[in-house]
């Protein structure tokens, strides 16, 4: 399993953002759904080795991120796109992605090709020489995804990656997700239930810091059948049903 976490919690002062999550995932696309404040971003940041858990055990790519040498090995094979992407405005798209390729220790001889491939995969080939400050919100999201995949990661963590993408870009992005999920474990945090239905083989639903559902999108849909829960689509009704049950 590329992700294997047991009873993980994370506190920020008195707030318990993640409250005992146990989960495992192998290659494929896992959608992480949940309302605002459910703990999705905190869980992703722990999986990205940005913050350590307050308690519990995390193993990523068969390694322990709590051990410095193993954490370095994980990070070489990791891609991460946070909710709010930071960038240096004067970099071109290529420079932005190249900087991350070099930091992630992609062999120097392979960097130009790796950068070009990543930029093409996110559909920014025609903007490769454009400055980051000139890009639209959707293009910036795609540049962020390019830096995350430039090292061909085995574990890819995406926090709200489709925010700011137009419908056409979202459809293309789902295709990219499915493609990446062929070899890597991809965890996608999102509010958009339809993205999960279209691109994810597995879905985990978080609420109040806990995972209240883990299964396939079809299983989540089935939970809403015959119910009067809110939602315009079957998957949304399943989502609402599970949340209502978890809170009752």
């Amino acid at each position: 399993m590329n992700i294997d976490i047991t009873d993980v919690t994370r506190r920020f002062g008195r707030t318990r953002a993640v409250a005992g999550v146990t989960m495992s995932a192998g290659p494929g696309v896992l959608g992480l759904l949940g309302p605002n404040g459910a703990g999705k971003t905190s869980l992703l940041r722990m999986l990205a080795t940005v913050i350590p858990p307050t308690s519990g055990r995390i193993r990523l790519l068969e390694r322990d991120p709590g051990v410095a040498a193993q954490r370095r090995a994980i990070r070489r094979r990791l891609g991460y796109v946070p909710q709010h992407l930071g960038y240096y405005p004067s970099f071109t798209v290529v420079e932005f992605v190249e900087y991350f390729a070099l930091l992630k220790e992609v062999p120097a001889a392979q960097v130009p090709r790796a950068v070009a491939t990543a930029v093409e995969r996110v559909g920014l080939g025609d903007k490769a020489r454009a400055r980051m400050r000139t890009l639209s919100g959707g293009m910036l999201r795609r540049a962020g995804i390019a830096q995350a995949i430039v090292n061909d990661p085995e574990l890819l963590l995406l926090d709200e990656p489709t925010a700011g993408l137009d419908p056409e870009q979202r459809v293309a992005f789902r295709g990219l997700l499915r493609d990446l999920g062929q070899t890597a474990t991809v965890v996608v945090s999102t509010h958009l239930v339809e993205d999960v239905g279209a691109a994810c083989a597995q879905v985990a639903l978080m609420d109040g810091g806990r995972i209240v559902f883990h299964g396939t999108p079809q299983e989540l849909t089935a939970r809403g059948e015959g119910r009067t829960a809110a939602g315009d689509a079957p998957l949304e009704r399943g989502y609402s049903t599970v949340l209502a049950e978890a809170r009752s």
């Binding site: 991460y80 992630k104 220790e105």
Partner: peptide, 15 residues
């Protein structure tokens, strides 16, 4: 000051 935030922090040992 880094403009990149978390993604830069979780790269290799060169940083």
């Amino acid at each position: 000051a880094s403009p990149f935030g978390d993604p830069e922090r979780v790269t290799g040992h060169r940083l």
